[in-house]
């Protein structure tokens, strides 16, 4: 079973960023327990070059690079259920 790799790009500690982070945490703890999961949070204000490399347009942006399919989601990720749907998670083994 492959590792779930997530990157969240935020622009400072905004209410939107906090909402996105808490939704993600909730999803990982409640719905993806038992899966190996790696979440990296990148603040584009601190590391704009990283945003340039990944061509990030909006914030927050969540990128799921593994397992396939690759997904890019923008927004404050309002609900865990919708997020799981969009990300095709948990992976079907």
């Amino acid at each position: 079973m492959s590792k779930i790799v997530l990157h969240l790009y935020i622009a400072g500690q905004t209410p939107r960023a906090e909402r996105a982070i808490s939704t993600l945490r909730r999803m990982i703890e409640q719905e993806l327990a038992g899966h190996e999961c790696e979440l990296t949070i990148i603040d584009v204000l601190a590391d704009p070059q990283q945003a340039e490399n990944q061509k990030i347009l909006a914030t927050p942006t969540l990128i799921k690079s593994s397992p396939p399919p690759y997904r890019r989601v923008i927004g404050d990720l309002s609900s865990v259920t919708d997020l799981l749907n969009v990300l095709n998670l948990p992976p079907q083994s």
């Binding site: 704009p48 070059q49 945003a51 990030i56 347009l57 909006a58 927050p60 997904r71 923008i74 997020l83």
Partner: peptide
């Protein structure tokens, strides 16, 4: 500052967002 559409990219919108990343990239450049 490359904001051209990426062929593999399918942007899914979930909730509200801003263009803070774009602003940061422009200012950085």
């Amino acid at each position: 500052v490359d904001v051209s559409p990426q062929p593999e990219e399918e942007l899914v919108e979930l909730g509200s967002y801003d263009l803070g990343a774009l602003l940061a990239r422009i200012e950085h450049a």
